[in-house]
Design a protein around this nucleic acid. Structure first.
Lengths: 197, 197
DNA sequence: ACCTGAACACCGTTCAAGT
DNA sequence: ACCTGAACACCGTTCAAGT
């Protein structure tokens, strides 16, 4: 059996789902491939290179799988962007940490990015506004989804703390519905963007 | 010389600034303290415990140092929240990664949180709205600042890619002014929150 | 209370060599 | 082209023991 990059990335993503990013190691991955650890350095220049490829795979499948906006309005486009980022992160355990630690530059993501900014400009944005809006929405989506994902990974909040801090309790109650919280914040941001100035 | 937790945390934060989170190790920290690695386990139950304490220190000094809002309006309160999160992250190398990997529960941060939600309710928010707004602003601030910080850590984008992708180029140009990008996205979000519904 | 010393079970990475 | 095998310089953590 001779492995190639894509196969190794797929199996590395399986390992990620099972053990998490912290415990993901080249040595264990090599063990699963029934190959010596050093063999991985034929396919990847180092661990970071593998992580970059894994993140690229997440984004790529999220871009293709998230339903395209039915209308190319500002709202439709930016909502699609946000949901795509969220889907990419949620598709794997520790997907958020992976996306943060990996360098960007997924090739088809760049096409998507160019296309989206171009369409925003067609909707009446200046290039600067379009790029700023893209950045804001993307950062919101990633921030919200990473927090949401960490919440499932971390231990639940101490009940006694919840008792003592009504603010914390109300946040815990609200964020229990991750979808609604994400969408509401997104809508607020989009409302502001639509109003500009 | 006998160390205590606070001293060790301070020196660990210095080490973080010098070597980054990836290369921060208990062994090197022990070396700097002129102590055997195992000695750290007298003060901290494990590495995560130390990281939690480091994150707590970041947030604590950011909360005390960020100028309090002059007016307790919705805008003033939430802007203060966002800038505090950003200041905490930016205060140290890889501060964003640290805050994401650390469990929350800084004690005075909880007081601040309760106070802020209470004040938002006094401004006419329902508890659910206040908690959702808090979450949205906090997630935006963290997402934006982590991205901003990674940008300084990672290698700059390949000039050839910038040439080929006008969308990417416009984003690079916009995010070069990190302050302006952060503040503009924040204002959009706050505009949407103020408009509710 | 605070630390030493030794040990255990791991890591990522390099490099020469094999087929 | 794809991998082995050995080695290097590291990790976090445990535990008995010292002072």
């Amino acid at each position: 059996m001779a492995w190639d990059r894509d196969q190794i990335v797929r199996i590395a993503l399986d390992q990620l789902d099972e053990v998490g990013l912290e415990t993901l190691s080249l040595r264990k991955l090599a063990g699963r491939l029934e190959v010596h650890p050093s063999a991985l350095y034929y396919h990847f220049s180092n661990k970071q290179d593998l992580l970059d490829e894994m993140a690229r795979a997440l984004v790529q499948t999220a871009v293709t799988q998230t339903p395209k906006p039915s209308e190319f309005t500002t709202d439709g486009l930016l909502t699609h962007l946000a949901r795509t980022q969220r889907a990419a992160i949620r598709s794997r355990r520790d997907g958020g940490l992976l996306m943060i630690k990996a360098r960007p530059t997924a090739d088809d993501q760049l096409e998507y990015l160019d296309w989206l900014i171009e369409r925003l400009v067609a909707e009446g944005f200046s290039v600067t506004e379009a790029a700023t809006a893209f950045t804001a929405v993307s950062n919101y989506a990633i921030g919200a989804t990473v927090a949401e994902q960490q919440r499932t990974t971390d231990a639940p909040a101490d009940p006694q703390l919840l008792q003592q801090h009504p603010g914390l309790r109300s946040i815990a109650e609200v964020t229990a519905d991750a979808d609604a919280t994400f969408e509401r914040g997104l809508r607020w941001l989009l409302d502001g963007i639509r109003a500009k100035p």
